[in-house]
Amino acid sequence: MRLALLTGLLAAGAAIAAPTSPPEWSAPTDPFRVADNLYYVGTAGISAWLITTPKGHIVIDGAMPTSAPLIQSSIRRLGFQPKDVKILLNTHAHFDHTGGLADLKRDTGARLLANPADRKALETGTYPGWEENRGLDFAPVKVDGDLKDGQPVRLGDAVLTPRFTPGHSPGCTTWTFQVKDKGQPLNALLYCSTSVAANRLVSRERGPQYPGIVGDYRRSFALLKTFRADVFLAPHAEQFGLPEKRARLKAGGANPFVDPGELARRVAASEADFNRELARQEARAK
């Protein structure tokens, strides 16, 4: 994930300004259909997802603090109306995935459901453990209902199951649901993230980002290894090869988003990165 600049500034104790974010995180891009009733409505670098049903629609993630108008424009371009969005969901409460939720909620009237472990971050608009870095803030948004691990969220014919995979944030939530591609039912998984990014795993000066973070990461890796997914989705474009896949999708042929082996490959790579970063932070703390 392209958070090296943010991480370095945080480690130096600097206040972060929004322009330090990679430009593609806020850049517009064309929306498109991934499969059946699943659509991409995010920015060039940050994902947001639209799931449509006859009873209304679901949006997962709000991307950057400036992204709500872009997301709503993308929904309209696909032939749907933002006012028909009934439920807002989130993968995790960081500014680059939550920033647009307050505006989306205001404009659509949708209810926001969230992992209770991320409720405080959502309702204060802060990054837990870096509250003093105002550049990581986003507009606070009221949570209307708490999710329960494994208890599905239902709207129309859509059934989305939240699985709690904390570490990247205390309330990191991975979503599983079914889609169809050319009539074939497929299991989709929207991964929350297991990158370390700006998180302190070990720190003599400040302590970890939040108590128990290392154990949370390890339990989340173990849980993710038990999942099977035909379609792997992620919050950042580079985490699931979005540019390459959308180009292949446009060219026709087999749907490039269908790859039953991708989840295992991505989780294994992320766990290896985590172990290296944990070792680095432990050595620095000695």
Rank of each mutant, 00 (worst) to 15 (best):
M1G: 08
M1S: 07
R2K: 14
R2Q: 15
A4G: 07
A4N: 11
L6N: 00
A12R: 12
A12M: 12
A14Q: 14
A15W: 10
A17G: 09
A17C: 02
A18Y: 10
T20G: 00
E24V: 13
S26I: 09
T29A: 14
T29W: 06
D30H: 06
R33Y: 00
D36S: 10
L38A: 02
L38S: 03
Y40V: 03
G42P: 01
T43C: 04
T43D: 01
S47L: 13
A48M: 13
A48P: 03
W49N: 09
T52Y: 04
P54I: 06
K55E: 15
K55R: 15
G56E: 00
I58D: 04
G62I: 08
A63K: 06
A63M: 08
L70E: 01
S73V: 05
I75H: 12
R77Y: 11
G79A: 08
F80C: 03
P82H: 04
K83W: 02
D84Y: 10
V85K: 00
K86D: 06
I87A: 15
L88G: 08
L88A: 12
N90S: 05
N90Y: 05
A93H: 14
A93F: 07
H94W: 13
D96H: 15
D96P: 00
T98I: 12
G99L: 09
G100R: 10
G100H: 01
D103S: 09
L104C: 09
G109T: 09
G109C: 11
R111S: 14
L112T: 07
L112K: 14
P116E: 09
K120E: 10
K120D: 03
K120F: 05
A121L: 02
E123K: 15
Y127A: 04
P128G: 01
E131L: 01
R134Y: 00
G135L: 07
D137G: 02
F138C: 06
K142E: 12
V143S: 14
G145R: 13
D146F: 09
L147I: 08
G150F: 00
P152N: 14
G156H: 08
D157G: 04
T161Q: 07
G167S: 07
S169N: 15
C172V: 07
F177T: 03
V179I: 15
G183V: 01
G183L: 05
Q184C: 08
P185C: 07
P185I: 03
L186C: 02
L186K: 13
A188Y: 10
A188F: 12
L189P: 00
Y191E: 08
S193C: 14
S193G: 07
S195N: 13
R200S: 04
S203K: 03
P208N: 05
Q209G: 02
Y210D: 05
Y210F: 10
P211I: 08
G212M: 12
G215M: 09
A222M: 06
L223D: 01
T226C: 02
A229V: 02
D230K: 11
F232D: 02
F232S: 01
P235A: 13
H236L: 15
A237M: 05
G241C: 02
E244Q: 13
E244T: 12
E244I: 00
R248V: 01
R248C: 05
A251H: 05
G252S: 07
P256Y: 07
D259E: 12
P260I: 04
L263S: 01
A264I: 02
R266K: 14
R266F: 06
A268W: 09
E271G: 09
A272W: 02
F274Q: 15
E277S: 12
L278Q: 14
A279N: 03
A279G: 05
Q281W: 03
K286G: 03
K286R: 10
